[in-house]
Amino acid sequence: MKFARQFTGELIGTFLMCFLGIGAVAVATLFGALTGPGQVGLVWGLAIAIGIYVTRNLSDAHFNPAVSISMILAGKMKVRDLPAYLLGQCAGAFLAAGSLWVLFGDSVAKNLSNNGLTMSTNSIGSAATIWCEVFPNTANGTVPMMVGAFAEGFGVFLLCLVILSLTSDENKGKPSSLIAPLFIGLTITVLINVIGPLTDAGLNPARDIMPRLWAACVGWGSICFGNNIMDTICVYVIGPFVGGIVAALVYRYILKPMHIKKNDDEVEA
Score class of each variant (00 low, 15 high):
A97S: 11
T121S: 12
G141A: 15
V79M: 12
N114T: 11
V143M: 03
S113Q: 11
V108P: 05
S126T: 09
G116M: 09
E133I: 08
G75I: 04
Q89C: 07
A139H: 11
T138N: 11
C132A: 12
S120C: 06
M146W: 14
A128H: 12
M77C: 07
A127Y: 05
I124S: 01
F150N: 07
K110A: 15
V147I: 13
L103G: 06
T129Q: 14
K78H: 13
Q89M: 06
S126A: 04
T142S: 15
D106C: 00
T118D: 04
M146A: 12
Q89V: 00
S99E: 05
R80V: 13
G125R: 03
N122R: 01
N137F: 00
V79L: 13
G125Q: 11
K76Y: 08
Q89N: 09
A149F: 05
M146T: 07
Q89F: 01
M77K: 13
A84S: 15
D81P: 04
N115L: 12
N115K: 15
S107T: 02
N115M: 08
K110R: 15
A91K: 10
G125W: 07
N122P: 00
P83V: 08
I124K: 14
V143Q: 02
N137Q: 06
T138E: 09
F104W: 13
S107N: 11
I124G: 00
G116N: 03
C90W: 05
V102I: 14
M77N: 03
D106T: 13
A96Y: 00
A149C: 05
Y85N: 01
F150Q: 04
M145T: 15
V147N: 00
L103K: 01
M146D: 10
E133M: 14
M119T: 06
A93H: 01
N115F: 00
G116E: 08
G125P: 01
E133Y: 03
L112C: 00
S123G: 02
F94E: 05
V102W: 04
G148W: 01
F94L: 14
I130H: 09
A96M: 10
T129S: 14
N122K: 09
W101F: 15
M145P: 07
G141M: 10
P83W: 08
T121G: 04
S107Y: 10
A109I: 07
N140P: 05
G116P: 10
G105F: 04
P83K: 09
V108R: 06
M77Y: 08
A96R: 02
A127L: 10
A139C: 04
M77R: 14
V102Q: 01
V134K: 07
F104T: 00
T121E: 10
G98N: 11
K110P: 03
G105P: 12
G75C: 08
A93L: 06
A96V: 01
L95M: 13
D81L: 06
N137Y: 00
F94R: 00
G98D: 04
W101K: 12
T129R: 15
F150Y: 05
N111L: 04
Q89S: 08
Y85D: 02
W101E: 03
A128N: 13
T142A: 15
M77L: 15
G92S: 06
M119S: 01
T142R: 11
